[in-house]
Design a protein around this nucleic acid. Structure first.
Lengths: 190, 190, 190, 190
DNA sequence: AATGAATGAGCGTTCATTCAT
DNA sequence: CATGAATGAACGCTCATTCAT
């Protein structure tokens, strides 16, 4: 990795941590450069604007998440266990010291409606996640019809999102457990 | 209602509309006073700070919501229908022209973690809503034990929150339908 | 004059002096507020942008100029003397300690071509000056036909502008004398 | 021409075009290197500072102008025609697509008074032009005394400068025609 | 009770220039 | 001889809040 990429990535990492911890609008460029130990103009030679940093942050976070949840689910035995794993994944996720909810949900509350770039980015991130869930359903529920797979996938996605958000809001793990309970009922009941 | 209260409420209404539409940090005091047609110092004679306005906005919104959803559920026949109504309520809610998701979720992303006042307010709002759901379950599912009532109530609350957030994020009603589907399965399956 | 207008005018005066002495792009907002002894936000409550200050400066300068040159020419006996006075006016003007050429010419070099507002302002200022010269010619040369008045007016304007600019560029009064000489030849030769 | 000079001249050409079109302060070093296709440090190995580029630009422009106007005037028959040619030269000059007035006048508005180097350069450019005009007068008006030659030369210079500036400011050719008219009157009237 | 002019701290961004390679 | 990543200082501008009236 060359010098430029290293600096660039250091900036993204710093910005990610700060944005995720404090929120996009509450973190100024000055805090980012101070934490990164770089000059302001250096930051702006790597990113055209603060908004571009936000996009990079959303990318970084989502790629890491997808990688981790894929690994987590793969480690479970195939079948219902892999579907339940999607929600179980949230338990260690929630327990991380720096857990602060969903970056997409939090970011979308911080940018104006007109900001198409950011909102498109967030939607495509969520779309990628839904695609992952759908494929997981297809792999583990091959016996279901396409429409039923789609429906189950949507339900699983919804339970994931609700559990993620509420565990953050309540500062407690019970929403994750509740989601898991609902899913298990669903899977066994049919 | 005296003059003071009238002015005060006009400010709250204006601020509520603007905060909900654009977001707390993206609306400045100037926009609020301009829209309200009052002087800056008048605003500060009614509210000590912008934060106090935020608290009033969260209060206003939640009181209205609780009133509406209570009325909506009461209009349904007792039993499962009233529980399902909690989620069905979201359909006209989502279809409102100015629908912009959950004010609590959006606001919590905009204030720093240290802001105890706002975060406490939001939690107590959500707590009140959970209490409403719990009481609705208790009324309509008297045959269940307390623990089962609590559990069902949590599930219903979770489905409500997930559907609300996701219908906003996706800009579509399907998450509401999916939630309703999940609930119906649950109610019938047992 | 109320408080607001006083502050406003103090800002314009300060900005005018600084812009005229150093140039628009070389003077920062910070220098203007420091010299004015006001806060930055105060300036921005009176002027939306630095560009608006530039427009006010161009206005201020031109109004003063027109007032002064009108008074100067009126003080001369009617006839050729009033026309020659247009150029003679430049002598004390040039000798002013803070003389720094034509603010319009200098400003137009400092704003991008796309800046329609400023360029329109400058053109309309110059147009007003040409109108003044034309009316002076009409008053003092009523025997000439309209077309000849127009032509003479253009020539006088051109000599004025050339003398003003070159006396500044050369740092000497000879261009003014040369212009006066040319005009006198012209007036006597016919 | 060796490699170094080639690069150097490419930079000057690019900078000249950009400075003349947009203005010295409105063009950044980055635009120059991007347009030139060279690296930033390469530019700084050829020119100590942006100011040195400005000096080279003023040089380049003036040398080209003197060469062109000399050729233009030489092409006319000797006598008054060559003097009038000085002003007639402005017509095709004005009509050039990239015409943007006098680089000296525009540049002097962009550098601080203290900048002796640039101001000296501009004055010496203008002095060289005045010398050219004087020699043209001496060649074509040998019958005049030295003082009268000097005076006529100054008048011609003034008309040239006024016409150049005003044709730019007004975006019209009439100031050139007016100048020519004044000059012809002058030459014929005596 | 209500005003609106004034504030200080901070914002995101750009600049000409330098230095290690 | 040429590079491009990095810099510190300054830019124009906005914010929530206060104070004299």
């Amino acid at each position: 990795m060359n010098v430029k990429s290293e600096t660039r990535h250091k900036i993204i990492r710093t910005a990610s941590d700060l944005f995720y911890e404090k929120g996009y609008n509450l973190i100024g460029i000055n805090e980012i450069i101070e934490e990164s130990g770089i000059a302001k103009a250096t930051l702006y030679s790597h990113f055209r604007s603060k908004e571009e940093l936000l996009l990079a942050y959303l990318d970084e976070k989502d790629q890491e998440l997808l990688k981790n949840i894929r690994a987590f689910c793969s480690s479970k035995s195939t079948g219902d266990a892999q579907l339940i794993a999607v929600l179980e994944f949230l338990i260690p996720f929630f327990e991380q010291e720096d857990f602060n909810g969903c970056w997409c949900i939090r970011s979308i509350a911080e940018v104006p409606r007109e900001n198409v770039k950011v909102r498109t980015k967030i939607k495509s991130n969520k779309q990628a996640f839904r695609q992952f869930v759908l494929e997981l359903v297809q792999s583990n529920k091959p016996e279901l019809g396409e429409s039923q797979q789609q429906q189950l996938s949507n339900q699983l996605y919804l339970l994931y999102e609700g559990a993620l958000m509420e565990s953050h809001l309540q500062g407690a793990a019970w929403p994750i457990e509740t989601s898991i309970g609902l899913l298990k009922d669903k899977l066994q009941g049919k």
